[in-house]
Design a protein around this nucleic acid. Structure first.
Length: 493
RNA sequence: GCUCCCGUAGUGUAGUCCGGUCAAUCAUUCCAGCCUUUCGAGCUGGCCACCCGGGUUCAAAUCCCGGCGGGAGCACCA
């Protein structure tokens, strides 16, 4: 359209300007040599789908450029710690294939934070405030300093010491980092750096009662770890601005910050408190309940970490909020597992059907349709031509159907007749359904909505423990247990 | 209310900085057909998008202005 015009006007502009097309994640800015990055989970429970994004993105970049990736437990709120998370989070990261070079625990570093706090105090960039929190906040919102803000260092230090010796109760004194009371964004004005909390800490007990808050601890640690790039959700944008004050006061070099948008994940329970409650009182069986969006639930269902990785890499790190798509994740996973997933018959909600007029029948079904070399599953019916089919596969009226890899039958007035084994029938559009023999095993499939599909599975499924299989016409599932009951966990269709 | 960020198909994404090969990429979904003894896989085709309105320009997804819409933050949580 405009092209023709341009050809007349300025053909030289049409000369090639090959735009390189980069797939996957964009390059990081300001990379000099190796990168050092971190993930900073709060140890309040195992990792879920949302966390996997941060973990995988960090890992991808560290692997691309070379460098180090830290895992830092942000356990500076003693009330919100689940001690088991110190173990489960590294397990989850390992499953994800995320390489952690070093683990840091903030609760082991309190002395370091105290040192920096003292330094800020001495520089006049912090103060110890004993205002009531509401009062202090009101002053801040109207851009006014509280009476403690500009008091002399000696008084600040005296109050600082008293924060440790028990003179103050929680909320009666805190160390505040100064920023700029005139800052147009009220969220950026003076923020609390350390507070008093007497809740026993799962790791340090009552040894410390002065706890750094995230903005102080994060700034200090990010600097001391000499991070080059920090990935964080955009909900931390204002925290980044606050932390930059600390960097500026102390003359530290800032890492490159990259903020990414929020992910909304439909149909997934991710809330740690709700999950914990659901485990105690039902309806969840544990952190790996297939209803949950935890990584251990996905693992249990047979979702491969590589599928998650591809998903997050293709999603990228834009600042826009996004919607998570289970369908896309399942599609990636199907691609990974289909080749290795042998086929079996499982009949949900079974109905017994006796085939009349049948010779001795033997079902011969390929183990995997794309892999004839894997052989056939032979299912002998012997002299009792009785099978189970799913109730939902029962024809409404009289009809012919093909029992897959077995024979053709005709439903007539409630009876089922053998009508040969010719595949020509299929050309007439006859439906194909699956079946299992009478000597099948009871089996259940745990569904992601919390229901349990009960049915019968062909005997051979009992030999697939731990494997990812496809129950034909039903779903891909992971065979979790085979005795006393075959138990599968639903992955996806 | 205040501060900041962001708007490309159902979803995610490329292109936006440096306007022209964009009649807009790729993936996934959805629809149709083919193939297949699975509702899986494969193959082919199709639907569907530059938030809106002005402006600048020979030319705007791209630059400017104004709207509209969405999100985040305004915690002694992270």
């Amino acid at each position: 359209m405009q092209r023709r015009l341009l050809e007349e006007l300025a053909p030289e502009l049409l000369v090639k300007e090959v735009k390189t097309r980069e797939m996957g994640l964009p390059e990081l800015k300001n990379v000099m040599g190796e990168v050092r990055m971190r993930m900073a989970p709060n140890p309040s429970g195992p990792l879920h789908l949302g966390h996997s994004r941060m973990a995988i993105l960090n890992d991808e970049y560290v692997k691309r450029y070379g460098g180090l990736c830290y895992n830092r437990f942000e356990d500076t709120d003693p009330a919100r710690i689940d001690p088991t998370a110190y173990d489960t989070i590294p397990e989850d990261l390992e499953w994800l294939g995320v390489k952690i070079h070093k683990t840091i625990v903030q609760s082991e570093r309190f002395e370091t934070y105290y040192g920096i706090a003292m330094k800020l105090l001495e520089m006049g960039k912090a103060y110890v405030c004993t205002c009531k929190p509401d009062h202090w906040r009101d002053l801040k919102n109207s851009r006014r300093p509280c009476e403690h803000r500009e008091q002399p260092l000696s008084e600040q230090k005296a109050r600082w010491d008293k924060m440790f010796d028990g003179s103050f109760k929680p909320e009666e004194a805190s160390l505040i980092v100064k920023t700029d009371l005139e800052h147009p964004n009220p969220a950026i004005r003076d923020f609390v750096g350390l507070r008093i909390d007497d809740t026993p800490h799962p790791r340090t007990g009552t040894r410390y009662r002065v706890y750094p808050l995230m903005n102080l601890a994060v700034a200090v640690d990010d600097h001391l770890l000499d991070l080059t790039h920090v990935l964080r959700g955009k909900d931390h944008l204002n925290n980044t601005y606050r932390q930059e004050y600390i960097y500026n006061y102390l003359g530290w070099k800032k890492p490159e910050y990259i903020h990414y948008g929020r992910v909304s994940i439909e149909d997934a329970q991710l809330s740690k408190s709700k999950i914990a409650k659901g485990i105690k009182q039902g309806p969840y069986s544990g952190w790996d309940d297939p209803q949950l969006g935890t990584l251990r639930a996905l693992r249990r269902r047979g979702i491969r970490p590589e599928a998650l990785r591809r998903y997050w890499v293709e999603t990228g790190i834009k600042e826009v909020d996004i919607e998570f798509s289970w369908k896309t994740l399942y599609s990636f996973n199907r691609e990974l597992i289909d080749d290795g997933a042998d086929r079996y018959f499982f009949v949900a909600d079974p109905v017994e059907v006796r085939i009349e007029g049948a010779p001795e029948l033997v079902g011969r079904a390929p183990v995997h349709p794309e892999h004839p070399e894997r052989g056939l599953r032979e299912i002998m019916l012997g002299r009792d031509p009785t099978v189970y089919i799913s109730r939902e596969d029962l024809p409404e009226g009289n009809a012919r159907v093909r029992l897959k890899d077995l024979c053709n039958v005709e439903f007539v007035d409630g009876k089922v007749r053998y009508i040969g084994n010719s595949l020509d029938l299929l050309k007439e559009g006859v439906r194909i359904i699956h079946w299992v023999p009478k000597h099948s095993f009871d089996a259940v499939v745990l569904m992601t909505d919390g229901t349990v599909k009960k049915g019968k599975a062909e005997p051979l499924l009992a030999s697939a423990k731990g494997k990812m299989v496809q129950l034909e016409r039903f779903a891909f599932v992971r065979v979790e247990e085979v005795s006393p009951l075959i138990t599968c966990v639903f992955a996806h269709r």
